[in-house]
Every structure is written in structure tokens, then in C-alpha cells.
Design a protein around this nucleic acid. Structure first.
Lengths: 148, 148
DNA sequence: CCTAGAACCTACAGTGACTGGAGCTTCAAG
DNA sequence: CTTGAAGCTCCAGTCACTGTAGGTTCTAGG
């Protein structure tokens, strides 16, 4: 049976990401450059599919690209120490925990802010008043912006 | 008593943000341009301090800049409807809730991934194996990267 | 074989919210 | 007056993508 390769669009669809993302990963060296047709189009085999799948899965879990690069380097050495992979995953877990804690705190604050009847004018508005006066917060919250 | 103004560094320290951030907010029109010394240095009064404080507080709560811009426009009209501010805050609360839900799911997955003894070789490594094989996840997780 | 349209290519810049550095000027305390 | 901290504008970087312009290639169907 002939080895089967696919163009970039098919790979992207099968893994669930954008074509541009795959090109980006190749550009930054996270994925190896694939074979090309005589006309210059990329063709990908199973090994590429596995690597890309690994990367996307790790991204979904919030691992930053440098950490993913390191994890992939570990997979290239069968006898490498598993502890390194664990440490990377543990660091990510801690980051997720911190994020959850902070978002819970901010959720509380937003809920309190919204605990009033709408329809009044701005000068009576609790949302605006709270944002204008930090002292109205019932607890300190993290000074880092909380992109949700 | 003379009206007191402060240079940008002092304002930044008092509000707890960077000098560059204040310049950035002025550049994008979120803050009005302040008065200048004859030598071109910015000097800020109490009104600026209040506006910047409002912006930073809203950022800490995760409001995106366009929403903050809108909230500030509301404060310029004393008789504006409070419902608009409420809607903005409610949208932010929903985004925070979604984020928390997703991060909780991802935390579960990372914890399961780490539930084994370290020290083994990569080919036996559960962290690597899970990233390599999506099927090992015990539940579906969101396809959006989970920056924590 | 030919055609046509989908999908491919590179190059370049944008996204959002900052952030930092180069090379210079101003300010204010001593 | 001197000196060093802090100010200025300009430009580009961060992170991880993402989109578009202007062109070429591929492949299915006639």
C-alpha cells in the first residue's frame, strides 16, 4: 500500500486547527518542514500528523510553546527521564490553579457589583461607582488584568 | 492652595501601573492628553488620576478596553441609563464564568495526567502519552487554548 | 486534453494589551 | 552650576496566532 500524504488543508481539518497555524509552527521550528510537490505544495504523512496532534493537545491544556518544544524534545529520546515532563505539567497545573483562584475572586466582585436594580441613572450606578472607587471592593483583588 | 500636578512616573506609581501603559492609553485615546511643561513633560491632575484609576480597576476585572471606553463615555453623561453599564458588567461576568468552567475541566485533566510515579522513562510516561493520544483524556475538553 | 474553481504558495502585517530599549532632553536637588 | 533621575518620541517586541493580497498548483469533471 502506498504511503499516504495529505495537503495542509486536510491536515488542518483533521487536527482541528488553521492552515496558517501549521505554517506558523513550521516557521518557528516547532514542526519539521514537510515534503513538497514539484509545484511547491506541502504534503504531510502520519508522523507529522502525530506531532501536530501532540502540539495542539498541549496547547489546549494551556502549555506555552516553549514548554511544548521541550516536551517534544523529550519524546525524541526514549530513555529520557520522565521527571522533566512531570515538572512541566506540574508547573502548568499550578498556573491553572492560580488562575482559577483569581477568577473566582473576580467573579465574586462582579456579582456583588451587579447586585442592584438596573434602570437608574449613571450617577446612582453601582457598576460605575465600584469601578471609580476601589475602596468599594469588599476584598483585595489581584492587580494583574484578568482576561477571561 | 495651588492646584497640584504630578509627572507621569508619580502617577504610574500611585495607581500601580507602568509609565508606558499611561502613554499607551493616551495614544489610543482612552485618556485625554494632559498639560505639558515648557520642556514637554506631562503633568497630571486629580481628574486624570481618577480616570486612570477607573481604567486600571476595570482592567483588573478583565473588562476589555472597548468596553471600558464605553463605560467611561457613560460616566460623561449623568443622566445616562445605568442598564448599559450593567449589560457590560454582566457580559464580563459571563465570560469569567465560562473561563472558570473550562479551567476546572483542564485542571482535572492535568491532575489525572500527573497521577503516577515519576522517575520512569519517557516511553512509559503518562504525561507524554496523554498529550500524544487524545483518546486517553477521560472527558472532552474545549478546543480553545487555555492560557492560564 | 482542457477548464475551472478550490486550495495551495509567500510575504507582510494585524490582533489585544501592553512592554522595553535607543538616543536624546528636562527637571530638580544639592 | 552639576549631576543623575526621570522625562521625551520613536520603533519594535511579546505571545500565539490570524488574515489578506496577489499570485500558482492541483485535480475532478467534461
Amino acid at each position: 500500500m502506498r504511503k499516504s500524504t495529505v495537503p495542509i488543508g486536510e491536515l488542518a481539518r483533521s487536527v482541528g486547527c488553521k492552515v496558517q497555524t501549521i505554517r506558523y509552527y513550521e516557521q518557528i521550528g516547532l514542526l519539521p518542514a514537510p515534503v513538497r510537490t514539484a509545484g511547491g505544495q506541502r504534503r504531510y504523512g502520519a508522523a507529522h500528523r502525530e506531532k501536530l496532534s501532540f502540539v495542539r493537545h498541549a496547547r489546549e491544556l494551556g502549555f506555552p510553546l516553549p514548554a511544548i518544544r521541550e516536551l517534544m524534545a523529550l519524546t525524541d529520546h526514549e530513555d529520557a527521564d520522565c521527571a522533566r515532563a512531570d515538572a512541566i505539567a506540574r508547573r502548568q497545573l499550578e498556573a491553572v490553579n492560580r488562575r482559577i483562584t483569581m477568577l473566582n475572586s473576580l467573579r465574586g466582585e462582579l456579582e456583588r457589583m451587579l447586585r442592584h436594580r438596573p434602570g437608574r441613572r449613571i450617577r446612582d450606578c453601582r457598576v460605575i461607582a465600584t469601578l471609580a472607587d476601589h475602596g468599594l471592593c469588599s476584598e483585595a483583588h489581584h492587580p494583574e488584568p484578568a482576561n477571561a
